[in-house]
Amino acid sequence: MREPLLEIDNLSVTFRRRRSVTRAVDGVSYSVAPGEIVGVVGESGSGKSVTVLALMGLLPDRGVEVTGQVRYNGRDLLSLGDSEMAKLRGREIAMVFQDPISSLNPVVPIGVQVSEVLLAHTKTTRKAAMAESVDLLRRCGIPDPDRRLKEYPHQLSGGMRQRALIAMALACKPKLLICDEPTTALDVTIQAQVLELLKELVTDSGTAMIMITHDLGVVAGLCDQVNVMYSGRIVEAAPRGELFAHPRHRYTHGLLASIPRLDLPRGDPLHPIPGTPRDTVAWAKACAFAPRCMHATDDCVRPDLPLQPLPDSPPDHPVRCVHPAEA
């Protein structure tokens, strides 16, 4: 096991509005080592994106409370000042967002946007940065990069835009790449191309990667380690082979039973999870999934259930569930 590059330790994020207090992330811990892809799966509102926004320092200061520790190369990211964080962001830690059209500046040509990253973080000239941008775009699979450099985001297709965004993220050879639903807006054949590109990157350059997605299929093909989040907490974590072979938490189990699979015979009805992700109770009172869980009993109202390995599961497979599924 390699030394982790990033360690998230007991991270919590609370949003305070006038009267309402929302705990979006509640004591989340996971780590990423160089060359490793860690997946974070969850539905909307599970806190998977807020976790990484918090560690990148991208949440607003007002009304947001972030506690816990995020150690990156021995430094606590949460205690860094804005200017120090700005130096790290883009150079050592880069992020790819879901929607490339809103992440790119619509009135600046692609080439300028890519070379901007290089100019901001490295000692280079405008001309050299442009030349490197061509190279980056080419490596990210954009055909005819010399011409594309001069084009504006709206002139590129969705897949191209996402590649341009990945090129920007890779410009300074980051040690950690955080991808937040990078392929959700793309068609499957383009998704396959982009995922292949990301996989190559990690194997070739030993980048550490956090992959946030709602698509269990993407996780199954790409990630080494998987964290399943529900309502702000990790409910189950395991290496991908173990997780898909023996899902133990009732939520993970239910999720896998509710999606139609292309490779299995048809005819069996799907087994949906009742309710919606909004039907939760606070973790402080009970298991947040209990209102939707078919196996819930009075015991599930016990607060503060720890995330720990079950007696019959391997030590690297902790689960937060009172009535776990059979191994």
């Binding site: 054949t189 396959a192 191309q193 292949e196 698509d215 996780v219 199954a220 093909g221 898909f244 292309l262």
Partner: peptide
Amino acid sequence: IALMSAIPIPDPEVEDRRERILLRGDL
């Protein structure tokens, strides 16, 4: 054929055994 091979399947064993056919370029 390409479309089918591009669709991720939520099972690591199937994913690792699968051959993928990538399409070039865009629509």
